[in-house]
């Protein structure tokens, strides 16, 4: 029954592509008929995708092979191809894990990111919900102000923040980071969640109100369960941002055992003008794995929150 329509839909494609298209007549088009013929598809879809993938993945590839190269191989382009590992070695990883404080840095980064993320999410949920749904006077303005706060670059903000960190006696402690990361995480998450809350029909809340729920109950029992995809994507974003954060971590932390991965790797594995490339790359690789794993777990939620709203 559905046969007739898709056939008709491909008609213009037949006309344009001439005999070549006709030859493979079995192919069924599904609407976007400019993507239908193979040569076209190669040019419009696969080629750009390949280029994109290459640009995206090559640094990772470089990171991986450098991690497993010995120094002789790394510095000798004549005898060894730079794009391949001939004698893989675990030396760099061994150095990273047993001769530096890398495991502690990982732990620090994890603690700081997780705590800062949850703290920011909590604040962002309250702020986003209040701005979007409580309709108080000036809620629009507050929303704009929060967004503007996000636009202030950390490279300017770290100077006043460092004064505050010092005077609270937080310098060189995890709290210095846990409490400063939310300055950029909260605005970001608030904006993301505001958009998400807006997509939840107002009627649901009114219905809950009539059913006898309080504001808090509405937030916890209706809004949050429906905003899970939004929460997850805000969480992932916040986590990634804190995981990779550099400036604050560099300024507010001084002792080796308190450093985070991004700072520790570049400050401890570069001695003067000596770059320990192998270990540096190993550190970067190990540091990006947790984030990659996190993304792969939640990618579906993440995409749905970027593209879709709540469907009843």
């Amino acid at each position: 029954m559905t046969d007739a329509t898709p056939q008709r839909a491909t008609e213009p494609g037949v006309a344009r592509d001439g005999p070549a298209r006709r030859g493979r007549g079995g192919d069924e088009g599904e609407g976007m008929d400019y993507l239908v013929s193979l040569p076209r598809r190669v040019v419009t879809v696969y080629l750009p995708l390949l280029v994109f993938l290459f640009v995206l993945l090559f640094p990772f590839y470089w990171m991986v092979i450098t991690t497993f190269k010995s120094n002789e191989e790394l510095y000798d382009f004549k005898d060894f191809s730079p794009f391949w590992v001939v004698h893989p070695t675990l030396h760099n990883l061994h150095k990273l894990f047993f001769e530096t404080h890398y495991p502690i840095w990982l732990w620090n980064t994890m603690v700081v990111s997780v705590v800062a993320t949850f703290l920011s999410l909590f604040c962002a949920v309250c702020a986003g919900y209040a701005i979007e749904r409580l309709r108080f006077k000036g809620s629009r303005l507050v929303g704009m102000a929060i967004f503007l706060a996000y636009l202030v670059p950390p490279s300017i903000l770290f100077i006043p923040l460092s004064t505050m960190v010092f005077s609270y006696g937080l310098f060189d402690s995890k709290f210095a980071l846990i409490l400063t990361y939310p300055t950029f995480l909260i605005p970001f998450c608030t904006w993301l969640l505001m958009g998400y809350f807006r997509s939840i029909p107002y009627e649901l809340e009114e219905c809950a109100l009539i059913d006898g729920a309080t504001r808090l109950q509405i937030l916890v029992k209706i809004i949050l369960p429906l905003a899970v995809p939004g929460l997850i994507s805000a969480g992932i974003f916040a986590f990634t941002l804190s995981w990779n954060e550099f400036i604050y971590a560099l300024t507010f932390i001084s002792s080796t055992t308190n450093k985070t991965v991004p700072v520790g790797v570049v400050t401890e594995l570069v001695e003067g003008d000596v770059y320990h490339w192998g270990s540096l790359m190993a550190g970067a690789l190990m540091g990006s794995l947790p984030v990659a794993v996190l993304y792969s777990f939640f990618v579906e939620y993440y995409v749905s929150s970027m593209t879709g709203a709540v469907k009843e």
């Binding site: 029909p201 009627e203 649901l204 009114e206 219905c207 809950a208 209706i222 429906l226 709540v310 469907k311 009843e312």
Partner: peptide, 8 residues
């Protein structure tokens, strides 16, 4: 409600 407003 017109759109039923069932909790999804």
């Amino acid at each position: 409600f017109q759109n039923y407003a069932l909790y999804p």
